[in-house]
Amino acid sequence: MQLPRLQSAALLRRYKRFLADIELPSGEVITIHCANTGAMTGCGEEGDTVWYSTSDNLKRKYRHSWELTEKANGELVCVNTARANQLVHEALQQGKIAELAQYKTIKPEVKYGTENSRIDFLLQANEPQTALADCYVEVKSTTLLTESAVGMFPDAKTERGQKHLRELIQMRQQGQSAVIFFAALHSGIQRFQVAEQIDPHYAALLKQAHQAGVQLLCYNCDYRIENAIPTALWLNHAIPIQL
């Protein structure tokens, strides 16, 4: 996925969930929008390098958006949660997710379930004669990294995430296929583990979903750097999941 043109600055603080103050190389301080509503543990600390994009929409109150964080060790983290769905959509279209490559029809944001949910992607086979069930795919942006290169989700308690797991379990009970897809957007993540210490209820539901036949996938990502500026990222390959 090609990234918008990015510029860098130093993070001063993140506040009110959606806002962050950054210091430009010129010394000017500006406020930018942050699309990530999570805790952003380890990827939004004072002094981190922020890579931000600029919108052409002059009506926006905050024209700049926080896209990536660069850590002191050079690791990159995509903190714009909207990018996770875009990455997965692109990979599905290109057949890059081997476990889901048999599906040819991709329908984003489809209403489903008994709790008034929208599935990120409904996948269907093109051939009506096939016995392949519809597949419901829920995507989760994963940025929390432990010292042992393990990525974790969630980084905060998530009632919304719990609801999604209940919905996927119901889809399996109805004979459909279901997938929870963790997009590991921190370049340091090499393995995945549910963050039981942060949200034990989510962890218990994830294990219940797995036992019910919901498929768990986690793919890491790669970044392209040109002239010291991140210009693109893409899903790379599946990494091990430990429940």
Rank of each mutant, 00 (worst) to 15 (best):
V214I: 00
F121P: 07
E67Y: 11
R63L: 05
E99R: 13
L233C: 09
R160D: 07
Q93E: 14
T114P: 07
D21Q: 15
V88N: 03
R13Q: 13
Q102V: 04
V179N: 00
C43G: 11
E99T: 11
R5S: 01
Y136H: 08
T31Q: 12
A98T: 08
E147T: 07
G213Y: 04
A35K: 10
L217Q: 09
A9T: 02
Q190L: 06
P154T: 05
L144F: 07
G38F: 05
I169D: 04
S141E: 09
Q124C: 15
P154Q: 08
A212M: 10
Q174W: 04
V50M: 03
P108M: 05
E99S: 15
I97H: 01
L12Y: 00
M1C: 09
W66Y: 04
L144T: 05
G161F: 07
K71G: 00
G113M: 10
N220V: 03
L217F: 14
H210R: 14
L87A: 12
K96I: 03
V150N: 12
M152L: 13
A195N: 03
H33W: 13
F18H: 07
Y52G: 06
G44V: 01
D222G: 12
L12C: 01
S187F: 10
Q102Y: 14
V50F: 02
Q208L: 11
L19E: 07
P4T: 03
T41K: 02
C221E: 12
E23M: 01
T130W: 13
A125K: 13
T49R: 00
R224L: 07
G27D: 06
S141V: 02
L100F: 01
E28I: 06
H186V: 04
W66M: 01
S26G: 11
G38W: 10
R14H: 04
N227G: 14
R14T: 00
Q197P: 03
R5T: 03
K163F: 14
E70K: 00
N36W: 02
E226W: 05
Y15D: 13
A82S: 12
Q211N: 10
N73W: 01
L123C: 12
S65E: 05
H33Q: 12
M40R: 10
K163Q: 08
Y202G: 06
R63F: 03
L165R: 02
E67W: 11
D222Q: 04
A238P: 03
I169F: 15
L100S: 00
G213H: 04
G95D: 11
A204E: 13
C221G: 12
H210F: 11
D199Q: 02
P154F: 09
A232S: 12
K140A: 12
Y15H: 15
